[in-house]
Amino acid sequence: MFKKMDKKATQRIEKEYKAMISNDSLYSIGRDSNDIYKWKTMIHGPRGTPYEGGIFNIDIKFPTDYPFKPPKFTFRTPIYHPNINDEGSICLDILKDKWTPTLTVEKVLLSITLLLEDPNPDDPLVPDIGQLFKNNRFLFDQRAREFTARHAND
């Protein structure tokens, strides 16, 4: 059974990869040539946000029972955000309890982009940043812009 799921996972991952590189995806992706289960992607900070102009690297690691379990998305570029911590972990419901096999990497990347546009300070992974977002949006935006300029403009 494990082998069959592994084969299904590989087929699904391959299909999603081909779809993303053949379409004009909003995201740049690549993968480890030796391991189909490891991808790298770059997303651009959304316009009108403190992340605008930044390029953020995210690693994606697929489980062997994908798409029945979500892949792990990890920010490699440091970011100042209430829902993304220093280790790059992302607090996003579709990567936890709201995951369904109908979701794709591209849909998750879109959700991450939307999270950059509209953080959720009521479910923060970094409580201090969540509090600042709620209590002093100007200072939050300033710090996020400075962080983006320092870390995401390589």
Rank of each mutant, 00 (worst) to 15 (best):
Met1Tyr: 15
Lys4Gly: 10
Met5Ser: 14
Lys7Tyr: 06
Ala9Leu: 09
Glu14Arg: 13
Tyr17His: 05
Ala19Lys: 08
Leu26Asp: 00
Tyr27Met: 00
Ser28His: 10
Gly30Phe: 04
Gly30Val: 10
Arg31Gln: 07
Ser33Ala: 11
Ile36Trp: 12
Ile36Arg: 12
Tyr37Val: 07
Lys40Trp: 01
Lys40Asp: 00
Lys40Arg: 04
Lys40Ile: 06
Ile43Pro: 01
Ile43His: 03
Ile43Gln: 04
His44Ile: 09
His44Thr: 11
Gly45Ala: 01
Pro46Ile: 00
Arg47Cys: 03
Tyr51Met: 04
Glu52Asn: 11
Gly53Tyr: 08
Gly54Leu: 02
Ile55Ala: 07
Phe56Gln: 01
Thr64Gln: 12
Pro67Arg: 00
Phe68Gly: 14
Pro70Arg: 13
Pro71Ser: 09
Lys72Gln: 07
Arg76Val: 01
Thr77Lys: 02
Ile79Glu: 05
His81Gln: 11
His81Asn: 06
His81Ala: 03
Pro82Gln: 11
Asn83Arg: 14
Asn85Gln: 07
Asp86Cys: 14
Asp86Ala: 09
Asp86Pro: 04
Gly88Phe: 01
Ser89Lys: 08
Cys91Ser: 14
Ile94Asp: 09
Ile94Pro: 11
Leu95Glu: 08
Asp97Ala: 15
Asp97Trp: 14
Lys98Cys: 14
Thr102Trp: 10
Leu103His: 13
Glu106Arg: 01
Lys107Ile: 05
Leu109Thr: 06
Leu109Tyr: 01
Leu110Asp: 00
Ser111Leu: 05
Ile112Glu: 02
Ile112Lys: 02
Leu114Ser: 02
Leu116Asn: 07
Glu117Met: 09
Pro119Ile: 11
Pro119Arg: 09
Pro119His: 05
Asp122Tyr: 14
Pro124Lys: 13
Pro124Thr: 14
Gly130Pro: 15
Lys134Gln: 15
Asn135Asp: 09
Asn136Trp: 12
Arg137Gln: 13
Leu139Phe: 08
Phe140Asp: 06
Phe140Ala: 02
Phe140Thr: 09
Phe140Val: 12
Asp141Gln: 09
Gln142Thr: 15
Gln142Lys: 13
Arg143Asp: 00
Ala144Ile: 12
Ala144Asp: 02
Arg145Ala: 05
Arg145Lys: 12
Glu146Lys: 12
Arg150Glu: 08
His151Tyr: 09
Ala152Leu: 04
Asn153Thr: 15
Asp154Ser: 09
